[in-house]
Design a binder for these strands. Structure first.
Lengths: 233, 233
DNA sequence: CCATAGTGTTTCGTATACGATTTCGTACTC
DNA sequence: GAGTACGAAATCGTATACGAAACACTATGG
């Protein structure tokens, strides 16, 4: 179990409900990769691991299903979802839309301090490219975008963004590879986004830019898979 | 009970799982207004109504919570959510975004037959305005938009649209009133949308138009309630 | 050797039961 | 008369138990 997962589990233990605890614990394990796509989630086993009975575990898993992190089949069981490249496409496309909107809505509320913070993160990302540290790069990437939409005044949209990121996180370390060429472009686009925000560009332009930023990552993935160099190893 | 609700209930009865049955049944009652916002959902009572035990009911309600139709408070119980005007704003804003995207993605796949069908629906809506039939108008409005995004190739986005509509449906008959002036504008905008699609306009233009269409409804509501200070769009 | 039926094991699905928590009504005190 | 303390009722939360469905494996017939 990673630190992140352990932290989440601890937090969950603090909150009273065992159902909440199970939910947070399983979610953390999916997001951090302990349970990777296709992993079979056996209710009784998870219940024993967490020291609770199956009922709250079942409830937690149904909730995760509603978020798209888990696939539940009647009388068969639950598996961590997300192997399918088609799902990846759907998720990325949806994320490009809601993330674009979230960023545009946040933009007027982003201050100089936020921009500076984002820039610092982006600088670190550049370093990661030189030292080739994809894991850290991915984490920093999330930090960067968090700065962009954390001020989003509409919690529903923010929630959709988070769900999208969670789904991606569950895929991250398994099926879909880090694409160095795309990563370089990405940090450049980050800087361009920050300048757009600083310059007080229209929400519409910011939305378009943010959307394109993610669409480009999707395109890079599609180009790679079409080229036949699949992530077979 | 509306046709939609009856259909959902029937489907639920056909599917074997009691949890599914409870989910569909309660959802239908929320959407069709049998359970209106603020209604207290007592697990034991619902269980008895449906002839099942509390466990599947509880599970169903947690799922509805994940969809935003229900608010669940620990050790207190569940209530149908949606009274808050702020929530209405959030929902409409989110819907304008996902619906706009869904319509734009569908547009290239919409054929002449679809357009004709939508036009017929819109004509009926005009009639409803003359006879003042808000209930029927609302149902037709949903039919109209269904034609627009039913071909959306991304099921995730489609799902978000449906969730938004469900939330609105639960509000419809209670808190938020029918605004005749806005309704007249609405049917005109529908026709404009259809012409945009027929003319093969760019997805971007279609998305903007679809988005504005919903934003305008939100604005009309805000103007009516004088809660204009909330507007962010 | 393959197909298939039968049996055992695993795992899910839900009813029931009981402890825990909140809420509401009532009586008591100031 | 207002506020508080206490007890009863209602409701939730979860453990346990058992029936049902799916899966894996073996045995049997072709």
């Amino acid at each position: 179990m990673t630190d992140t997962a352990r932290a989440a589990a601890t937090t969950a233990a603090t909150s009273g409900s065992k159902s909440e605890q199970a939910y947070a614990a399983v979610k953390a394990r999916i997001v951090d990769g302990t349970y990777s796509p296709g992993y079979r989630l056996v209710l009784a086993k998870i219940a024993e691991d967490l020291g609770v009975s199956v009922v709250p575990v079942r409830e937690a898993i149904r909730r995760l299903e509603a978020e798209g992190l888990v696939k539940f089949e009647r009388n068969v069981g639950a598996t961590v979802s997300g192997i399918d490249p088609t799902e990846y496409l759907y998720t990325m496309q949806t994320l490009s839309i809601v993330e674009g909107a979230a960023t545009a809505l946040s933009a007027p509320l982003i201050g100089a301090a936020d921009v500076a913070r984002a820039r610092a993160v982006n600088a670190e990302m550049r370093e990661c490219l030189q030292h080739f540290d994809p894991v850290r790069f991915t984490r920093l990437n999330q930090d960067f975008h968090s700065v962009l939409f954390e001020h989003c005044p509409n919690p529903h949209i923010l929630d959709l963004v988070h769900r999208g990121w969670n789904r991606l996180a569950s895929l991250r370390s398994s099926t879909f590879r880090f694409v160095p060429g795309r990563a370089h472009e990405s940090v450049d686009e980050h800087e361009a986004l920050l300048q757009l925000i600083e310059s007080g560009a229209s929400p519409d332009d910011i939305e378009k830019a943010a959307r394109r930023h993610r669409s480009a990552t999707l395109d890079a993935y599609l180009a790679q898979t079409n080229a036949g160099s699949l992530s077979a190893h």
